[in-house]
Structure formats: C-alpha cells, structure tokens
Design a protein around this nucleic acid. Structure first.
Lengths: 140, 140
DNA sequence: ACTAAATATTTGTATATGCAAATATATTTT
DNA sequence: AAAATATATTTGCATATACAAATATTTAGT
C-alpha cells in the first residue's frame, strides 16, 4: 500500500519519530522473552557490564535524563534485578545474582534484535544508518 | 565533549530514539509560539488543509494510532481550534475561524523548524536524511 | 571555619503515545 | 431479512519520558 503524499512526511519530525516508533516496536518484541522493556533491558545490561555504575553515568550512556534512569532503576530494583547503595551523594548500582543468571538471555535479545533489523534493511546499510543517525544527533 | 564509547550506542534502538528526542525538542521550541505541541500543530495544519478530514485519514498521514489522533483532536477541540461532527460511523473534523486565523503562524513554525535543522545539518543532507528514514521505516 | 556554588540523585507532576476493549455503524453473506 | 463480518472512532488503562523543584552532599571561595 502506497503511503499518502502529504507534505508532512517530508519533515524530519515525522520521519524520525515514525522510525523510532517502529524500531521500538521491533525491540519490544525481542525483549518480551525476558519480560523487560528495551530500556530496562539495556540499562540492566549496562549494570551487568559495569557493576557499581552510577546513575549519572547510565544517564550519559543511554542518553536519557537522570530522572528517567531513576525510574528505570526503581523498576529493576522491584524486580530484584539490581540493588542500589547510596553513600553520600553518590549511588552505586549492582546486579543481583538473578540478573547475572539472566545475562546470556539478555545478550541473545540484543543480537536477535540486531539480526532482525539488519536482515530487513541490510547489514551494511544498518551499520551505516547507525553511524549517520549518531553523527546527526551529535550535531543537534 | 566526546560521547562515551559504550557499545550500545551502536544500536539502532538508541540512535533512532536519541535522534527523535532531539528533533522533538527542537520542534517543541518552534511550536511554542503558537502554544501547541508539534503533534497538535501538525494535526491542526492537516485539518486546515483538508477541512472535513476524517480521523482515520489523519491517523494514516501522521503515522499515529487512531486513539492518539482522538486524543490530539480532543485537545484541539477544547482549545476551540477544531470541531468534530459525527454522522453514522464517520467523523469529520473542521477547522474553526480561530484556527484559520492561526494558519499563517503555523506555517511559519514549520518553515522555521525546517530552517533550523537544515542550517545545522545542511539542506541537502537533511532532505537526504528524510528520504532515507522514510524508506527504512517503510521497510520495517 | 563558614558560606556559596557545584554535583548527584530523587520526587512531583505532566505529557504523548499505544494496546485492547468497547461502541456504533455499514457492508456482506446466507 | 437476519446474522456475521468489517470499518471508524472512542475509552480505559498502562507506559516511558521529561522538566522543574526538592534533597542531600561535596567542593570552592573568602
């Protein structure tokens, strides 16, 4: 089915949002196996790969605001996947044994997700796309 | 300031979301002059350019779900910018005189927004980007 | 040493969005 | 014509995210 020819589609506002929503949807499907949203999954992986990491660093890495990171960590803590220890003004986040057990499955989610979109839009193309988007986001 | 070298940045999930958020932020700034969010602004423009348009068509054009369109229209109706008339199962959306008065300013928002990001990433580059993103979103 | 500024995190609140179900109408099939 | 299916829209509910303010702590300036 042809898309409509509305001018608005030619606007970066729509294209960037529409793409992000579709990617998000794909990601959600893949992360369902571990009962986590993609954001939660990626944050958890970051914690697993860097035990004791601070929320501020997660905020930088994930390009999400500190408050969003707090909310994501709250949920992960509820699920007994991480624990936070606060000493003075800094907080450290550690993975629980339960999270460590889950690690292999999390990695599988990431690769399955990559394989899925790469198989659709091409491996080279997707790598190129990621670079392009990253570069542009940095400029803005 | 260099971004961190986390592997996750190489994932389309992050780059597409991060880009969309940055673009959204730019757009919000531009649409503030008319006291509308970008989504509301674009929907209103679509209604102005096609009076009587049906929500379902707006949903297609904007690539948003019908429920989201309903919500956007509700708010525009509260603001006395559109009116909905329902006859049988179809609904038609019309702009009010107040909306018509606003039209020139809305157009200005769109072009100011375009100028802003095009001046940053380049006119040719941004046109190319829009095409690329659209094509990829269509594949997914 | 005390005050001011900077830093790290959390909380309160608001928003856009989507999914699934509900509602209402139109169309097709038998 | 009645029943089943399809279509259009709205509603109830859940979610991720951000901003601004609050909190707590550390560092710097005098």
């Amino acid at each position: 089915m042809k898309t409509t020819d509305s001018r608005y589609h030619q606007c970066l506002y729509f294209t960037s949002n529409a793409l992000a929503r579709k990617i998000e949807k794909l990601a959600i499907e893949n992360w369902k196996q571990v009962d986590l949203s993609p954001s939660h999954g990626y944050v958890l992986m970051a914690v697993l790969e860097e035990p004791g990491v601070q929320p501020g660093r997660l905020s930088d890495e994930m390009q999400l605001t500190p408050s969003t990171i707090t909310r994501l960590l709250e949920k992960l803590e509820e699920k007994k996947l991480v624990i936070r220890t606060t000493e003075g003004k800094i907080t450290n986040v550690y993975p629980t044994p339960k999270a460590k057990e889950l690690f292999p499955q999390l990695k599988k989610c990431v690769t399955a997700f990559y394989q899925q979109y790469a198989s659709i839009i091409g491996h080279k193309e997707s790598n190129q796309l990621v670079k392009t988007l990253g570069a542009i986001a940095d400029q803005l």
